[in-house]
């Protein structure tokens, strides 16, 4: 009996060491706001799948979080998209402040804005400059990168889901078609090379027969 309990204690220790520590770290990351800001839920689920998965057993279904992953990707995308929209609020405040500053500078230089048309021109210039500066900033670059990543991850996860359905309905999948296109592309290149070799050989033959004819 003691031997059995010892064996189970050892098992618990192994499981804790191999899976428990990593999974605890992963679950703790759920409390990190930066994870949500960076659209990191879907990658986290992938890591969890890696931590909890077992070797494939032929006659049993595998531990697969992919249906959850597509929902996670969508949540990530929504989160990043909200950040993308939200960043415009302080930007418009900045534009208003810059516009007020320009109005003051014009007045001090003796070129006060007199008509709505002049005010609109000044406003447009301020909007243009502020947006261009923001578009080139590191903050915007980071946000763009996150949005792009969230979009592409979401698309890839949706594709995986879609392909599973397509397989059930015996329809071609995107992955299969991509492989067909890859082979087709390879064959086109081979055909082009063969045509070039053939043209070169023809030229050689013509040159040989011409020189034989002249001699």
């Amino acid at each position: 009996m003691t031997g059995m309990w010892n064996a189970w204690l050892q098992t618990a220790e192994v499981v804790s060491r191999e899976r428990g520590v990593e999974s605890t770290k992963l679950f703790n990351r759920l409390w990190d706001p930066e994870l949500w800001r960076a659209g990191g839920l879907a990658p986290l689920l992938q890591e969890m799948q890696d931590v909890f998965s077992l070797p494939r057993l032929a006659d049993l279904p595998s531990f697969d979080l992919s249906p959850l992953k597509s929902s996670a990707s969508m949540l990530d995308l929504m989160g990043v998209a909200q950040q993308y929209v939200a960043v415009s609020i302080p930007l418009w405040l900045l534009i208003s402040r810059n516009f007020q500053g320009e109005i003051t500078r014009h007045a001090e230089a003796g070129k006060a804005v007199r008509t709505p048309g002049e005010a609109l021109d000044l406003w447009n210039n301020v909007v243009d400059r502020t947006f261009m500066e923001f578009n080139r900033s590191a903050d915007f670059a980071r946000l763009q990168q996150r949005l792009l990543r969230a979009l592409t991850e979401y698309r890839l996860d949706m594709r995986k889901l879609g392909e599973k359905s397509a397989q059930l309905l015996d329809m071609p999948t995107r992955s299969e078609m991509t492989e067909v296109y890859r082979r087709m592309h390879g064959m086109q290149r081979e055909l082009k090379d063969l045509r070039q070799q053939l043209r070169a050989l023809r030229r050689q033959v013509e040159a040989t027969s011409t020189s034989k004819g002249s001699s």
């Binding site: 670059a141 763009q144 990168q145 792009l148 592409t152 890839l156």
Partner: peptide, 17 residues
């Protein structure tokens, strides 16, 4: 500026998707 703000993996992921 925009392209340099992305990583090589970002571009590969975009094309893969």
């Amino acid at each position: 500026v925009w392209t340099r703000s992305l990583t090589s993996d970002d571009i590969d992921l975009l094309v893969k998707a």
